[in-house]
């Protein structure tokens, strides 16, 4: 029962995190920032806009991207197979990429291309992370991983690798080239408007939950550790976002594939011996 309620309200939860994050970021920059519920006010405003579309395929793909992501979160809450969830998440990302490719706009295409390249950067680390969890807990099932004691100590290098790719998923500096507002006008998002943009906007909230839901797997059954981890990483990611400049796509790939993958392989070696 609790699970079903959680699944239903998960986008709202994401919206709250997003709103809270905007406040934290503003405070770091010495601003007051928007109210906590600003994302929901935005939603109401977007729903009121006239319907403009480039063509139906585009908006359908955008909507399905959101829907699939929601299902991914539902599977995480239900405690399904982690590896499967990673691939279903890939499915949702690819729907967004296809949406980007489906319009004849150079910005949208550049954004979708970068989205694909970003996938090359984070996907291997996610897969190796799943294998790491398997080696330390003996199962790919999230429900089992959550019942076991925290594996943070034995999976620490993998944890670092995962933290390395969080900015990519959350479109945070220094790894936010995928939607880089100043150069490619938001990338994939550019041709969405009104209610259709709303779905993309909510998909972004869901990505927050996705990232933090995977993050707390490192805490196992320890709820205090889970909250502490989320809080520390939350502040860390925002501090880094405020303090760094965007790197090019090429460097993003080189950094994640060298540093991130080395950490993963090192961890797997430690686990295997």
């Amino acid at each position: 029962m609790l699970e079903i309620v959680l699944i239903l309200i998960v986008p709202l939860l994401g919206g709250l995190i997003y709103g809270f994050e905007r406040i934290v970021r503003a405070r770091m920059q010495g601003r007051v920032g928007p109210p906590l519920l600003q994302p929901f006010y935005d939603t109401l405003k977007l729903m009121d806009k006239a319907l403009f579309i480039v063509h139906p395929y585009h908006v359908i793909l955008g909507f399905l991207h959101f829907l699939t992501l929601w299902i991914v979160l539902a599977f995480i809450i239900l405690g399904e197979n982690l590896l499967y969830i990673i691939f279903l998440h890939l499915f949702s990302s690819l729907l967004l990429v296809l949406a980007g490719f489906s319009v004849r706009s150079i910005f949208s295409h550049l954004g979708a291309n970068r989205e694909l390249l970003a996938m090359v950067a984070y996907e291997p680390i996610l897969i190796l992370m799943a294998v790491g969890f398997y080696l330390s807990t003996g199962s790919f099932d999230i429900s089992v991983i959550r019942e076991n004691p925290s594996a943070l100590a034995s999976l620490f290098p993998l944890f670092l690798a995962f933290v390395l790719i969080i900015p990519i998923k959350l479109k945070k500096s220094p790894f936010d080239a995928t939607e880089a507002h100043q150069e490619i006008v938001g990338g994939v998002e550019i041709e969405f408007s009104g209610i259709f943009f709303e779905f993309l906007y909510m998909a972004k909230w869901l990505e927050y939950i996705f990232v933090y839901a995977l993050l707390i797997l490192f805490a196992g059954d320890n709820l205090y550790l889970a909250s502490a981890l989320s809080l520390v990483i939350f502040i860390l990611i925002n501090a880094i976002d405020n303090a760094t400049a965007r790197v090019k796509m090429r460097h993003l790939l080189i950094i994640t594939l060298t540093v991130g993958l080395s950490l993963c392989v090192l961890n797997l070696l430690l686990l295997a011996y």
Binding site: Y57, H58, L94, L98, V103, H109, N113, E123
Partner: peptide, 25 residues
């Protein structure tokens, strides 16, 4: 892992050319 990610990249970058639909028919 790397191979399967690269294959996905390959397939979907090819789709980038096919999929560009003209908005106004």
């Amino acid at each position: 892992t790397l191979g399967s990610v690269l294959l996905t990249l390959l397939y979907f970058k090819v789709l980038s050319r096919l999929f560009a639909k003209e908005g106004l028919a």
